[in-house]
Design a protein around this nucleic acid. Sequence first.
DNA 1: CTAATATATTTGTATAAACAATTAATGTAA
DNA 2: TTACATTAATTGTTTATACAAATATATTAG
Lengths: 143, 143
Amino acid sequence: MSKNVTSIPLSRKLITTLIKKGTAVTEAISLNLKEHGITLQQFNVLRILRGRKGKVASLQDVSKNMIHANSNTTRVIDKLVDKKLVGRVQCPTDRRQIELTITDKGLKLLAILDKKVDDAEASLTENLNETEMSLLIHNLDKI
Amino acid sequence: MSKNVTSIPLSRKLITTLIKKGTAVTEAISLNLKEHGITLQQFNVLRILRGRKGKVASLQDVSKNMIHANSNTTRVIDKLVDKKLVGRVQCPTDRRQIELTITDKGLKLLAILDKKVDDAEASLTENLNETEMSLLIHNLDKI
DNA sequence: CTAATATATTTGTATAAACAATTAATGTAA
DNA sequence: TTACATTAATTGTTTATACAAATATATTAG
């Protein structure tokens, strides 16, 4: 069966909705972090590092897992190091690489932020039940 | 029935997926516009103005309909005026307001861009059928 | 009519992001 | 070993965005 021509406007509606909701959600989450002087990018880096459970991560490990894998990762991490939330040392076996870890201070802050972000995320999705959420995730992954 | 506690990680997964997909889609669409020196914001303004079908729009009309309703709308429009894609005149009855219209050159460019963007949007959603797209839109609107 | 208030747009400034180029260290082939 | 290529991270620069303040015009209360 051939693709229905009316699928073009529907795909436009879907993409537009996705961009708008994505932006709105980003802003809603960011708002909770802002009071603590943390950006969404910085928050993601902290979460990635905590996920390492003590093992070090290189800058490119982090960069790959970020929403935007870009060349500004160094500067995002600079801010976290300045705030003593992340430790950065040169890798002894390959001195091109750096080894990143989350500090105790970072873990403590993250615990506070997580609570706020979890609440915000729960609030944003309060009109959806679990089945709907699972289906949304499943179908969003087809895009 | 009380809310299941496992809904918290599911909501996190959903929000994370939404942010990532929203970003990816934004970039994919932007890529098509970039070759023509147009940003997504500028493209949206052109579409909004075309939607007016000849009637003028004020800056705040445009700003309200943009993904980011912000104080930088003036500068986005500056670029479009520079490129002669949009006309800007002072409103005679209320000189605080400006009257914006899309030019013929703007309409011609938009016709080209629309084609590319429609194709990109169709391609992005090719793994979804109409029922799935409708449901996605419906459920995203609950967020 | 004048002062105060409200509204529409613009401008200034600091921060963030995109993109390209550079530096430093390592790996590899003659 | 030495030159060349590759990899990892950093830096420079331009453009975009967020947020606050300023400007210009219009409206309203007295």
